[in-house]
Computed example of a mutant assay.
Amino acid sequence: MTDTPDTQLAAFEQHRRMVFGIAYRMLGSVADAEDLVQDTWLRWSGVTGPVASPAGYLARTVTNLALNRLDSAAVRRESYVGPWLPEPLVSEPDATDDIERAESVSLALLVVLESLSPLERAVFVLKEAFGFSYPEIAEALDRTEAACRQVGSRARAHVRARRPRYDAPPELRRRATDEFLSACVGGDLNRMLELLAPDVTTWSDGGGVIRAALRPVTGADNVARFLLGVLRQLGEAAAVRPVLVNGQPGVLINVHGAVDSVSVLDFTEGPDGEPLVSSIHAIRNPDKLTHLA
């Protein structure tokens, strides 16, 4: 890298997706991730000498900024009202823009990452999502390579034990999501119960700002009746449409032209091989939806 503004900017833009992707996976917040992209740019633009690996420098910078931000985020989440869910990345179902997909990661995985320690999360994200080597990660986090390997192994085991084990093909996931959405909008309780796994769980994130369940709702009958109740409350003003949520089929609901909620479904394999809804994550906190306006 030379130290001219144009080459600095070009190098940063080349790795901007990576910088945002690391920050978003670490923090689960679009707004905070965008803030860290700007902070990382300020650090980068102040570099005056040659940098052997711009990608390594930028990854190290944004990761450590995110680790610092996580301290204050942990304090805020201790007093958070109801379940905390990440901010969603939303695109149209027929989106062909690979930038959105490259920056996306499933909400279910982000929820699992939230249960890791900050160091475990950093090692997992750098290694599993962006392919950095353990020597590079050790340098970025100022740890020994052996320590990073141990942390990475522990993080992988934790994620493997908690992430959904059934990975439905995208077209099957889209079809199952659309079918369940149709049953919900049509008020077809019996069909909803056929499409829900017996132990399905719904998490609703209202943050105390808007009405939402303060605890997870579990069981097919409870979840179905809860969802039908929500749709009845929203009334005819609700416009429901399919979207991609973090690269997976999901649902966006507008009420009077404003985004009310974004939801994404995960699936398990039913007894006949058909996908059944195993979990629903619904984000209603308006503070987490402002970037979708």
Rank of each mutant, 00 (worst) to 15 (best):
P198S: 01
G131I: 01
G82L: 05
L234N: 03
I22M: 13
T61V: 02
L36C: 04
R156D: 07
E179S: 15
R156L: 05
A212F: 10
I22W: 09
D167G: 02
H158T: 08
I137T: 10
V81P: 02
C184T: 12
E120W: 00
V251K: 13
I210Q: 10
E92K: 12
A155I: 02
L42W: 02
P135Y: 14
G187Y: 04
A74T: 12
H281T: 07
E103Y: 00
R174N: 01
N222I: 00
D6Q: 13
D35F: 05
L70S: 14
L107E: 14
N246C: 09
G28Q: 09
R225F: 03
N222T: 05
N246D: 15
D97L: 06
N68S: 14
P170K: 00
T4R: 09
T290P: 06
A138R: 09
L110E: 11
D32G: 09
L193R: 13
L58N: 11
L172F: 00
E103G: 15
D97V: 05
G152H: 05
V125L: 03
A168L: 02
G28L: 08
N246K: 05
F124C: 01
N68T: 14
L85I: 04
F132M: 10
R101D: 11
L109S: 08
L65R: 13
G273L: 04
L289H: 12
V262D: 13
V259M: 04
G56I: 04
V30G: 05
G49S: 15
D71M: 10
G21P: 06
V47W: 07
A10V: 08
A220K: 06
I283C: 08
P164K: 03
E34F: 10
G257H: 10
Q38E: 13
F20P: 10
T7C: 02
A59I: 02
D3N: 13
D94L: 10
A147F: 06
R284F: 10
S153Q: 09
A10F: 03
V251N: 11
T4A: 07
P286I: 05
V111D: 14
S53T: 15
S45L: 08
V51Q: 15
L116W: 11
L116R: 12
